[in-house]
Design a protein around this nucleic acid. Structure first.
Lengths: 341, 341
DNA sequence: TTGTAGGCGTTATCAT
DNA sequence: ATGATAACGCCTACAA
């Protein structure tokens, strides 16, 4: 049986209050007693029981993390950031994955609250209204990741998706591309996916290029699906000269589809990605992408939570981290007059 | 303030014992009372406090998972399996990542025990002796993943790494390859990496091919490192006709290195991988690999833990799951007489 | 400085 | 069938 505070107290011939004081440094304890207690603690291998502790303190030093899935580079990188920051602040994390099911999301929200999680980091591809209200009901801080959009209501940290998409589109235009297809996500119609689409359209408009709806294609985050929709796009005959995929995985699906059709990337069609997960620079051709500071997004989220836990008022509930356009090998400059046969 | 069992009891005009009974179905409660209590519970939105519960029950329905890192496809897939099985068994998981630091590993082992985790799933690239003794000290079930080796001491689940490596090597030999380089991991000298090397050597020996130590190269699990050591190998002049990488990531690093040197995969040099993480079939050329049932490894590990928690005696503490050789596009048959110029 | 005792929200063992 | 009440391991006024 594990030693308890009582065992320590008895063996040291002091009260449990004294033991409690030495393990928490809460009040002064005379040096001799203190040392004696410490010795016994060591001898018995006593460790305070965190469960009992959180019952009385209503604190757990636990941060809950809710994600749609785990085996995902995008999420994994963010998780690394979260883990790192938690560790250095002595918090532990409990992870729940929801498969994007919003009832599951709500259940986990409740669960984490019940477990005395002192804060929750929430991530989801698509944001359901019930989930938003569930989040609002929770007393402890909840912060969302990658969720900034016009009418954001919950604290969040992310990049400026609209601006990033704008920049990428403009980059493509500067490279001579006019016929730019956008691969976006149909499972995320109302948050960052929307922001990205707006950025794309604005960039086109600002350059006087007409937005062609048939160049905006909807898929999900899988390679296979992306492969499929790009194959369809190619078969329709009206070829784009560039494809802007709003995730690296989609970009890879696109490249595979293009090459399997006998075209070359970037010689025939340029493809750019978004996020810059590890595979982006590992794949050949290396992907030109918008880089998101995934790791930092994780650390900042935790930092915000902990600040809130500690009672600091945040200046900004919506924090935007900087993104970066990274040029690699999947995009090529084309001659404008190529169109004029 | 959250409603407690006491609030429910008072409002319902019954004792807390009765309330406890209805929420646990532990003993018969008369129908009228039961319904009344249920109504109040609903009205107050009462949820039992799991912390208090685990304090008295010494149970937490929590399984701890210790991994070296999170943003890793290999681990992610296993995690998905773990998550899935836990969910369907109503267990929650708390995840700790160690960066492969063995002191950190021990700290987490202690922490999880303190948090009343009912079982622990442990994963590490390299197994330190102190960790092994720490694991043995823990009373609750601990099971390791991917750790079977000759003198295994802790319950584990994995594939037969030796046999898998043997099969892959033999496959290469059957494809006409004689000069087969092995890319293995220097950070894991004494567990599955060792098993794989033994399998490789045995296959060579059984075909009467001499094992050349300079064809066995040591790296780590990163693409960059793999790229580097393969580049070195190529520059030394004595070219292998095939490279057996013991992880898919290493295989990709190898392919990139080979192609950057102006050779083609698989025309000039064949490369095969190990694990079959998602990228393996997504990369071009698609990787010929040994497939590990990652997801199942996760689910089986949890199943074992839960069985142990429930007091069942396991027939086998070491479970071996089936692997599979998957032929794709990164390996090519060569003519034997090519050597004889 | 140190000890006593009440309480955190449950479950479980007694009586009733 | 129901209700007191003693744990569970710890923290923290309050007293001494």
């Amino acid at each position: 049986m594990k030693a308890t505070i009582k065992d320590v107290a008895e063996k040291a011939g002091v009260s449990i209050a004294t033991v409690s004081r030495v393990i928490n440094n809460s009040k002064q304890v005379s040096e001799p007693l203190r040392e004696k207690v410490l010795a016994i603690i060591d001898e018995l291998g006593y460790k305070p029981n965190p469960v009992a502790r959180s019952l009385v303190m209503k604190k757990s030093r636990l941060i809950g993390v809710i994600v749609p899935e785990m085996s995902n580079f995008f999420i994994g990188e963010i998780m690394n950031g979260i883990e790192e920051m938690c560790k250095s602040c002595q918090y532990d994390i409990i992870v729940c994955s929801t498969q994007g099911n919003h009832e599951q999301e709500i259940r986990y929200l409740d669960l984490l609250e019940a477990k005395q999680a002192e804060g929750i980091i929430f991530m989801s591809w698509k944001l359901h209204n019930d989930v938003v209200s569930a989040i609002k009901k929770i007393e402890n801080p909840v912060i969302m990741i990658n969720r900034n959009t016009i009418n954001s209501v919950v604290p969040s940290v992310s990049i400026d998706n609209k601006k990033a998409a704008y920049e990428m589109t403009q980059y493509l235009i500067n490279m001579g591309h006019q016929k730019i297809a956008l691969l976006r996500n149909s499972i995320d119609m109302d948050t960052f996916g929307l922001d990205q689409t707006i950025g794309y359209k604005e960039a086109l408009a600002d350059s006087g290029i007409k937005v062609e709806e048939q160049f905006i294609r909807y898929g999900d985050f899988s390679v296979d699906n992306s492969y499929k929709i790009v194959t369809e796009l190619l078969e329709e005959g009206n070829l784009p000269t560039a494809i802007f995929a709003t995730s690296d995985i989609m970009a890879i699906g696109a490249i595979n589809a293009i090459e399997d059709k006998g075209y070359n990337v970037p010689d025939d069609i340029s493809v750019v990605g978004f996020n810059d997960i590890k595979i982006a620079s590992l794949y050949r051709p290396k992907l030109t992408v918008i880089h998101q500071p995934l790791f930092s997004i994780g650390t900042v989220a935790v930092k915000m939570i902990i600040d809130k836990i500690d009672g600091y008022e945040l200046k900004n509930d919506i924090v935007i981290l900087p993104h970066k356009l990274i040029e690699r090998d999947s995009c090529k400059k084309i001659e404008i007059n190529e169109d004029e046969k």
